[in-house]
Amino acid sequence: MPRFALKVEYHGKPFAGWQRQKDQPSVQGAIEAALARLEPGPHTIAAAGRTDTGVHGLGQVAHCDLTKDWSPFRLSEALNYHLKPAPVAIVDCALVPDDWHARFSAIERQYLFRILVRRAPATHDAGQVWQVTQDLDVAAMQQAANHLLGNHDFTTFRSSICQAQSPQKTLDELRLEQVQGLSGPEVHFHVRARSFLHNQVRSFVGTLERVGAGSWDPVDVKTALEARDRAACGPVCPGHGLYLARVGYPDDPFAVDLQHA
């Protein structure tokens, strides 16, 4: 039974998150339904991470087991045909060993968060950015973000419903970047770690936005971290500015150009 890795891109707006739901649309459910059009099911796919309602995917990775010996290119083409009109695309596909796992074989996850800074309502980027109307001091935000780097107890930035066994995580990167987007000035957050707690990135961003707006000092973020108390966290920002950008593996299953193999 061959196993295939799928690199998945999706717009999170119409979905109640990645995970399959009984009575709400999900990205996992859409892909499993497409697989059932190719081979008799039921199908259960596993992903590198479970994104929440409204969160987008640029480089989500999942794996599936099939009975037919598909070529990766034909499988991706067939899935994309049956995924229409859902805003989900299989952008790459690879044959992987039977013991390869999208979640457990991963060694890092990278997220992107986009803040659009402008007063006029977003039109083209609506649902894809978190819009704020006041200018942000990005240098102060980066100074505050640096307190979060490294290995810490991140209880303050952990959702109360998080199911992780420990709040201890190592944050490898939290880098802010000012860019000029199509709709106006944006602040991008590049966040990288082996794994994350539930709502950790959105808690970081919401807290750092308070620093950028002048409501918090950079050192207040250090104080909040050391409190190890969820009540010390700033506001949790909305999910629609968040993207699962990349999942890293010891050996990249998509390194070969399978579209032309």
Rank of each mutant, 00 (worst) to 15 (best):
P87M: 12
R118Q: 14
P250C: 15
F73P: 06
V187F: 04
A224T: 05
K68E: 07
T155K: 04
S159K: 10
G127H: 07
I161G: 02
L258D: 05
S159D: 13
L182M: 13
H43G: 06
L182S: 12
A62S: 13
R230N: 03
D257I: 00
I115Y: 13
C64V: 09
G12T: 14
N199A: 09
C233N: 00
R158I: 00
I31W: 05
Q259V: 13
F15C: 08
A144P: 04
D252M: 10
L112T: 02
P25I: 13
I90Q: 01
G248H: 01
Q163W: 06
A102G: 00
Q178H: 09
V88P: 01
T67A: 07
A33Q: 14
Y249E: 11
G206I: 00
D92V: 01
A144N: 09
G248V: 02
Y81Q: 10
T44A: 15
Q143V: 00
Q60V: 07
K7R: 15
C233Y: 00
M141T: 09
I107Y: 05
Q163K: 14
F189A: 01
M141A: 11
S26T: 12
V236L: 12
L176W: 04
K22W: 04
K7D: 05
T170D: 03
L83G: 06
S166T: 15
R246A: 08
L149S: 11
L149W: 07
Q165M: 05
A48P: 02
A144I: 06
L83V: 09
D252C: 12
E32R: 11
L38V: 03
S160R: 13
P121E: 12
T207L: 10
V236S: 10
L197V: 08
V236A: 13
S26F: 09
V27D: 04
A48E: 02
F104E: 15
